[in-house]
Amino acid sequence: MILEISRLGKRYDEAQGVGHDALRGVDLSVGSHEFVSLVGTSGCGKSTLLRIVSGLERPSDGFIRLDRRPVGGPTADVAMVFQDPRLMPWLSVRDNVRLALLKLKRDEQDARIDAALAKVGLSAFAAALPRQLSGGTAQRVALARALVRKPSVLLLDEPFSALDSFMRMKLQDHLSGLWQDEKFTVLFVTHDVEEAVILSDRVVVMRGAPGRVDRELPIDLPRPRVRTSAGVQAFSEEIIRALHLS
């Protein structure tokens, strides 16, 4: 077991806006090299959960352990891709990826950046500025920046939600390929139920306010998965039913 979330709660007080409980009593375990998707209606705390796992926010209750060590803040083992690419507009693609490697020597940085850009198919864009990239390409740079550190856990917070369906499918295939090659663990937040079924080993349905884990569905379909296949459709319908029940 690599990632263990236990009795996790998050409360925002009045000083942070409208006071409310975002999460309460969340329990979740994610195994090594497992691909787990979190689905749920808006406001059920999926992104908050991811931010706590990344170390960007602290839980109000409960704890997170990564390989039995408590997570108290950002660590080198956990990388995150956000909903938007969040590239520094003043840095080239190469230097944006370099941001994840500042502690390494320059020649080691360069070697790893070259490899990461090659993996996401962007070697030709190393010198480009973010404003010269399409949305899908920029999100691939963000993916390279997350993976170049060789994290054991990759967190993705609706990374493809702003892309058109064609680019979204392309990047889903791309992510799936990278995950199979690199053997990292994935915690993936999405609103797209089919996307969750196609990519995941397990789909976790969250519900309520404050959010909690309502149901977990292992997706035991062979890979690669086809969006229109009966198996994918059956799992999708089951998840949608679970969401509607909430």
Partner: peptide
């Protein structure tokens, strides 16, 4: 804030945060 969070998830200390994100963003 979203750019600053990129620095934080990459374990930036104050010096790296200022040098690589805050200073250029403030220019």
């Amino acid at each position: 804030r979203r750019l600053v969070e990129v620095g934080l998830v990459n374990n930036f200390g104050p010096f790296d945060l200022i040098r690589h994100i805050l200073a250029p963003a403030t220019l």
